[in-house]
Amino acid sequence: MLANVKQSIKTFFIAAPACLLSYSTLAQETVTDRWGVNMPVGVTPVSREIHGLHMDIFWWCVGIGVVVFGVMFYTMIAHRKSRGAKASNFHESTALEILWTIIPFAILIVMAVPATSSLIKIYDTEEADVDIVITGYQWKWKYEYLGKDVSFFSNLSTPNAEIYNQAEKNPNYLLEVDEPLVIPTHKKVRFLITANDVIHAWWVPDLAVKKDAIPGFINESWTYVEEPGIYRGQCAELCGKDHGFMPVVVVAMAENDYNQWLGERQAMAAKMKELTEKNFSFDELMELGQTVYNTNCAACHQPNGQGVPPTFPAIAGSAVATGAIAGHMDMVVHGSKKNPAMQAFGEQLSEAQLAAVITYQRNSFGNNMGDSLQPIDVLKYKESN
């Protein structure tokens, strides 16, 4: 029990400062005014309009404050008792009450007109050129390009050496991923945002997009980027122990470059489907399995397979990894009903990746079971279950 408490404290003191530092880094990169306290201008027409509206209303509020406090302080100084001023004695003034009701009402109307115009634009997701489904997982993002047969997961790629202060942190610390979301410039891109497990929030300040990702619901947003570039964000909803390790990276490309990238991803997706029919050697399965494990499993079960019991059990010597291979496959594909922390990876990974990671788990960390799975075995299992 004491070891679990110590591990939880260690995880907190690693994750909490990391989360705060990544937010600070993001703020420094996106805020343009010298004090670093203003909201970013952004790189889309809507983001610039939001920033302009924000600044207009800010200065209106400053003006109102100057007038109200100016009158108040003038009255306090000019009509103070030491100068012989005597308080007027009156009960009510209908004209004054009408005046101080009409003026705020007029101010609110003046503010509401441009604000409503901006809100209408923010929520207008119709006639999009590209539709992308964004699904939040603990602790990564899945991007699916509707009608394009392209989908992939985006994971944090910051090295562990930087996270554990064993190496110098780079400028994009905790804001870098292995697979960024790629979108075309000068195209309206609609985001359909949801979650698979808990509530997340997809947030990219430069795009003026921040939407909750809620299991069972789909929230919509959109963007229109005019210039190629790399824009970074994060999950903005506390979603678990690795909340601070769930960045968003969006790469905006010129249309020709985007089409070339999309073609390459479609070819890659077709190749992954072909791998389902391939028989891998044991060494090939172990090599691929190690990559899949480090990307998808090590965050909970640790790179050495020791886990963080009892929430994240060890792979080394576990009853699942050293038991029947069918039970192991069921656990990885469908997750655990007894322990919700164990996700279902059946839809997250391809059949080749599932076969490889199961083989790797059964033959690493001292398990040495000597058996293996092929992608076709996983496919047949999924079809029958």
Rank of each mutant, 00 (worst) to 15 (best):
G346C: 14
G327Y: 00
G335I: 07
N367E: 00
A324R: 15
G335M: 06
S350F: 08
V320P: 02
E351L: 01
Q361C: 05
A355T: 04
M331F: 14
G366S: 09
P340M: 14
A341Y: 05
Q353G: 12
T359W: 08
Q353F: 13
K337I: 08
T359Y: 12
L349W: 03
M342S: 04
A352V: 07
V332C: 04
A355C: 15
A324Q: 15
S336V: 06
M331T: 04
M369H: 09
K338P: 00
K338H: 07
A319I: 11
A344Y: 10
S318Y: 04
S350P: 05
G327A: 03
N368C: 05
G335V: 06
A319C: 03
N363A: 01
G335W: 12
T322M: 04
S336D: 06
I325Q: 10
K337V: 11
H334W: 07
R362S: 09
V332R: 10
Y360V: 02
Q348F: 10
V357F: 01
F345T: 07
M369D: 06
I358A: 01
K337M: 14
S364L: 05
H328Q: 13
K338Q: 06
N363R: 01
S350W: 08
L354N: 14
D330N: 12
T322S: 10
H328A: 15
S336I: 01
M329S: 01
G335D: 03
N339S: 10
A344G: 07
S364T: 05
K337P: 03
A341I: 02
K337T: 13
Q343K: 15
R362V: 05
S336Y: 10
L349C: 01
V332P: 06
A321R: 12
S364H: 09
Q353S: 14
M369S: 03
V357H: 04
T322G: 07
N368K: 11
Q361R: 04
V357C: 01
Q361M: 09
K337H: 11
G346Q: 13
A321W: 08
N368V: 08
Y360D: 11
G323L: 11
S336R: 04
V357R: 07
A324V: 10
R362W: 01
L349Y: 05
Q348I: 03
A352N: 08
N368A: 13
R362I: 00
N367I: 00
E347N: 15
A356R: 02
K338F: 05
E351C: 14
A356S: 08
A326F: 08
Q348D: 09
Y360S: 01
N368D: 15
E351V: 09
M331D: 08
V357T: 06
N368Y: 10
M369T: 03
A324S: 15
S318T: 11
A316F: 00
A316I: 00
S364N: 15
I325T: 12
M331K: 15
V357Q: 08
M329K: 06
N339C: 03
L349G: 06
M331N: 14
Q361Y: 02
S318L: 01
D330L: 10
N368P: 03
V320G: 02
A319L: 06
M331Y: 12
A344E: 10
N339H: 01
V333Q: 06
D330V: 05
N367A: 02
M329I: 03
L354M: 05
T359V: 09
V357K: 00
R362H: 14
Q343V: 13
F365W: 03
G346I: 13
Q348S: 03
G323D: 00
S350A: 13
I325K: 13
E347H: 14
G346P: 05
E351K: 14
